[in-house]
Simulated scan of single mutants.
Amino acid sequence: MQRVKKIFRLVHLFVWLLFTSLVSLQLRTDDPSIWLPLTTGFILTCLYVFYSHFYLLTLHSGQKRNREYFQKLAAIFFTGPLPFVILHPKTSGTWDLFLGYYPVSLLTMVPIFLFLSWLARVTETLVLNTIRKEQLEKQAAETELHYLKSQINPHFLFNTLNNIHTLVYKQAPTAPEAVLRLASLMRYMIYESNAPTVPLTREINYLQDYIGLQQLRYKNSPVVDLAIDGTPETCEIAPLLLIHLLENAYKHSPARLEPGAIKVRVEIKADSLTFQIQNPNGTHQKKMEVEEPGGIGLTNVQKRLQLQYPEQHRLEIHNTGETFGVNLEINGTHAHVHERETQLLHH
């Protein structure tokens, strides 16, 4: 905000210097003998009228025009021509001079610069209010985005801790690996996900840690078939975005899953990312929505996509009754091109 105000001050300075130069050049051409006092009086009158009214409008900004405002405006209006009349070189101070130049100045210069000062004040107020509104919208969007990212399904954490406790109690050889996966997962959620974007490789590692911990619930072969096509190192993505789709796939699948029942496909192209996931529908739940408190649903993903990838994504949902699928395509994910700050404009 201070930077914008500084720019306005520089604009004022530049305009007045340019205006003074043009006036002095014209008056010097007309009459070289009196151009300096004439220019001084004219510019002082313009400055006085302009900035007196400008300050008056600033003083009464956001208020209804009351009696005090109009009294001060009248004072500016009638005293505005005085610098020009006083400094005029021809028989200054005489009554004839006053009667000759005062009405002319009163009816020409004063109204013009009163209007220009009002126009400048309105323009600056409009620009500053627009910037303030955008800043407030950005803060609100950042707060909402932080809230959406911080939503963690407590059931997953509780179940994972219980599963690790069981492994430790049984002294299973997979217990240390499970602890490391949980530590990596929590570190990513708490520390690494604060950036607007992260390397896709890190997000995929996070998904793999999540899959590994979920696999503790199943005794058979891995129930998730994860395939990656392309080079993840060339992409960046908003953190903690894909995990919600994977979490919902687990939540709404049957209790018993065959190996490879949940299919996850990641495809990286020149400047886009496609994420596809498909899971069998559970017999007790046909809708892909989280209804339990603290859960993460597709609404979360949709809101984040609107905030972070406006007009740069496509989200398709397919429900055949037996299977549920989500196809997400995000454009502008190339690591060397995609150096974005979070986009928080309203669309």
Rank of each mutant, 00 (worst) to 15 (best):
312 Q>V: 00
30 D>L: 15
39 T>W: 10
174 T>F: 05
4 V>Q: 09
321 G>S: 13
242 L>F: 07
232 P>V: 12
132 R>H: 09
255 A>L: 15
103 P>T: 04
28 R>E: 08
159 N>K: 02
82 L>H: 01
105 S>L: 00
214 Q>A: 08
49 V>N: 09
179 V>G: 11
163 N>T: 06
70 F>G: 00
33 S>R: 07
339 E>R: 13
295 G>F: 06
44 L>R: 08
275 F>L: 06
76 I>Y: 10
85 V>S: 02
116 L>K: 05
247 E>C: 05
73 L>H: 08
220 N>S: 14
170 K>W: 02
338 H>V: 08
142 E>P: 00
315 L>T: 02
267 E>A: 15
136 L>H: 13
304 R>A: 06
210 Y>F: 12
7 I>T: 14
289 E>D: 04
109 M>L: 04
23 V>A: 06
252 H>C: 10
25 L>W: 15
188 Y>E: 05
281 N>Y: 01
253 S>H: 01
298 L>D: 02
291 E>H: 08
237 I>Y: 03
307 L>D: 01
286 K>C: 04
67 R>S: 13
134 E>V: 05
105 S>W: 07
135 Q>E: 14
117 S>T: 10
76 I>P: 06
295 G>H: 07
141 A>V: 04
338 H>F: 03
239 P>D: 02
308 Q>Y: 05
26 Q>L: 13
92 S>G: 00
111 P>V: 10
206 Y>S: 03
332 G>S: 01
316 E>A: 13
240 L>A: 09
42 F>P: 03
208 Q>N: 07
237 I>N: 02
223 V>P: 01
106 L>H: 07
55 Y>A: 15
158 F>Q: 05
202 R>V: 08
243 I>C: 00
307 L>H: 00
196 P>A: 06
121 R>F: 15
16 W>N: 03
263 K>G: 07
279 N>C: 09
147 Y>C: 00
270 A>H: 09
26 Q>Y: 10
278 Q>H: 00
81 P>E: 04
200 L>I: 14
31 D>T: 06
195 A>C: 05
117 S>R: 03
194 N>W: 04
172 A>K: 08
26 Q>R: 12
247 E>D: 14
296 I>N: 09
174 T>S: 15
192 E>S: 10
273 L>K: 01
266 V>H: 06
153 N>K: 04
152 I>A: 13
111 P>M: 06
315 L>P: 03
200 L>F: 13
168 V>G: 07
277 I>D: 05
6 K>Q: 15
122 V>L: 12
24 S>A: 15
51 Y>H: 04
27 L>C: 03
2 Q>R: 14
347 H>I: 06
109 M>I: 15
116 L>G: 09
249 A>C: 11
17 L>I: 07
163 N>E: 07
133 K>R: 14
266 V>W: 01
5 K>H: 12
253 S>D: 01
343 Q>N: 11
256 R>E: 14
31 D>W: 04
101 Y>D: 04
325 G>Q: 15
161 L>I: 13
45 T>R: 07
276 Q>V: 12
306 Q>F: 00
250 Y>C: 05
132 R>C: 11
65 R>N: 03
225 D>H: 03
191 Y>T: 11
194 N>K: 14
124 E>A: 10
289 E>F: 03
